[in-house]
Amino acid sequence: MSFIDVNHLSKTFKVAKRNSGLKAALKSFVNRKYVSIDAVKDVSFKINKGEIVGYIGPNGAGKSTTIKMLCGILKPDSGSISINHMSPFEERKKFVKDIGVVFGQRSQLWWDIPAEDTFDLLKVIYKIDDKEYLETKNKLVEMLDIKDVIKMPVRQLSLGQRMRCEIAASLLHKPSILFLDEPTIGLDAVSKEKVRNFIIEINKKYKTTVILTSHDMNDIEALANRIILIGRGSKLFDGTLNDLKAKFGNCRKVTIITNDTLKKFNKKGVCKRTKTDIGYEFIIDINLISISSFVNYVGEYVDISDIDIDSDNIDNLIIKLYQEYNI
């Protein structure tokens, strides 16, 4: 059996349906209609110890729901999860000792006092013994370069500093699995780099299994050797980044700067078109249409004052992928 074994996982939410306006609100108060939403539908995968897996998908695809079920916060409607021979929901207290969770948008640090105090509280929560705690803390502090940072009240920290403290906090009890839900959200390039390097380092050093969700495709590119793509609750792709590129990596983003307006057109190979302030952005598939014929085609209708072609970017790839699966 694999380290993480997920079989036919499903979760449905009941959401109250209401229209806008006061009248509708009153109406829904009396007679509320519910709509079932399949947040996760029949998802299965296996993950081995020491892997870094990028779990990606657009907003509302079911990423967070899956992560919550893996952490034991949510109970699946059907299907099974086995992580390290434990069922997250059934054996919550025993299970969560072995996982670390970072919710990028939600802090677990106490706002008004130094992060080090939160660390001390976590020591009590996880019942870590003194010697081990000091050892782990010092190592994490050194690796994340937050020696002075943890002595300041959290409210005075920059986002990057806080996120590094946040990550340290979730690793104090040396979990064998780390869940990172958008760990680099809102960080600048330097902080992102630091966080990424750190994740790679602990993965190498301690064989920590990392499951990562992110909208920043550079995160995924830098960290994950394997990608699981989810859309509308279903698993769409599971494989390495190279597989993904081989399959869909024929997309280019073409930015055209022009003052003219371009009327709608349908051309094979043009996946996506967006109007910007200064012109248009296209995603095109170079297997179906060559750059030169595309530019020629557009050039017939508008006066192109500048052009930018963005090669093999993973963001484009994902946009194409979403389109392919119609999500």
Binding site: G72, K97, R106
Partner: peptide, 12 residues
């Protein structure tokens, strides 16, 4: 505010 999720991932 979702803090409860955090409590659920702690062994207490």
């Amino acid at each position: 505010n979702g803090m409860f999720d955090r409590l659920l991932v702690r062994p207490r």
